[in-house]
Design a protein around this nucleic acid. Structure first.
Lengths: 213, 213
DNA sequence: GGTAAAACCTAGGGCCTCTAGGTTCTATCC
DNA sequence: GGATAGAACCTAGAGGCCCTAGGTTTTACC
């Protein structure tokens, strides 16, 4: 009987296809072995255990995703870059739900640090914001806000969280419009007081008060 | 031997505690049975299967969460309400990671519709935004943006996604500042053109162009 | 053709889900 | 106070998944 020609890379690639087909939570060593026409035990020569399989899948998907984003953002700036980044992000998440789910798992920080994915992600993300003229710590705050929004939106959309009749694509575009104006008018630390001047401002007066709430 | 006094409600409550203790993904019928000093088969009189157990847990957690939010938001408006809502949301998510994870699972829409959780959530969320003077469809767009951001932020924070040295609480507060000014200056549909006037605007000129990108 | 490494297998233990079909407790009615 | 129904709980067992130990077959290369 011809051998399946298994290899760590091929196994992980198959896991990615399986994830998109049946959902990341159903990516199991046994199911994967079935796909290759092989016993489950045979796969353990190529991946140490399910955890490692999931981790490798996460890195593969993360690399693919940031690759698409890099391509989309290349040569763009400002809102153009923002829309391209967000579009590539969401497109990948919706086209590859299983792979995208894989990118969300908790993975050993040491492993992440070794891979290039994190560095590339940080680079393209901070680069995209360069045009908005933010400086630390505002820059990191903005990055966190954007990542949260992109991830939250795609995650909720993929799990059917948006049930209102309003078109989901339209909401997404408005969200990007909104984030763009937000980045252009990012509130500086010292603007906080002025903006709340018409509301009650005696609340922060006595620090002791806070302990009771 | 004294009986454990099992009941659907008690089982689900125990599942919630178990989820926070060992993570939602480890909430298993067997583990739950062990907790009651009972065989796993005994639990199947009270819940149909794991799926139902998870669904009930999700509804329990969702109800608890929206309850806290309702309390926090009560009597507040504007930024006050926004901060209270977001604070209660994040506090619950971080204090009850297992329960919060449960709220994120895909659950049969029919079941959700039957429960009150969705209605109460929509009510308090739209109510919180009342002070910002938005009308449909901007209102729904804003709700989706806020939900995405809250969920994304807590989800990323809980899974260790924020590795930069910047204080996570501080970033959260700045995100709320930013969202507040965003809601106060929500971009109307017809403002889009003006805001991009300094960028290339010939891009949208020919509708035919879009098909190729 | 011989050899070593790689690819794959069988066997088996442990944990998990879930069903079928008991037995034991408990509340309630006469 | 005894009978009875239903609830609470149990044993037994099938099937899927994870993973290890140790064996056999294929492949590549000298």
């Amino acid at each position: 009987m011809a051998r399946a020609g298994l290899t760590t890379a091929r196994v992980v690639e198959a896991a990615a296809e399986l994830a998109d087909a049946v959902g990341f939570e159903n990516v199991t060593v046994t199911a994967l072995a079935r796909r290759f026409g092989v016993k489950d035990a045979s796969l353990y020569s190529h991946v140490k255990n399910v955890r490692e399989l999931h981790t490798r899948l996460a890195l593969l998907a993360g690399g693919e995703m940031i690759g698409r984003i890099e391509l989309a953002v290349a040569g763009r700036a400002g809102k153009d870059a923002l829309v391209a980044f967000a579009g590539a992000y969401r497109e990948y998440a919706l086209a590859h739900p299983g792979r995208y789910a894989a990118t969300q798992i908790r993975v050993d920080p040491a492993v992440v640090a070794d891979s290039e994915v994190l560095r590339r992600t940080a680079e393209v993300t901070y680069g995209m914001l360069r045009g908005y003229g933010l400086s630390e710590p505002d820059l990191t705050d903005a990055v966190r806000l954007l990542r949260s929004t992109f991830h939250g939106y795609c995650s909720l959309e993929a799990s059917g969280g948006f049930s209102a009749p309003r078109d989901v694509q339209a909401s997404w575009e408005r969200a990007l419009d909104a984030l763009h104006v937000l980045l252009e008018h990012w509130p500086k630390e010292d603007q906080k007081q002025e903006q709340e001047e018409d509301q009650e401002e005696d609340q922060e007066a006595d620090p002791e008060e806070r302990k009771s709430s």
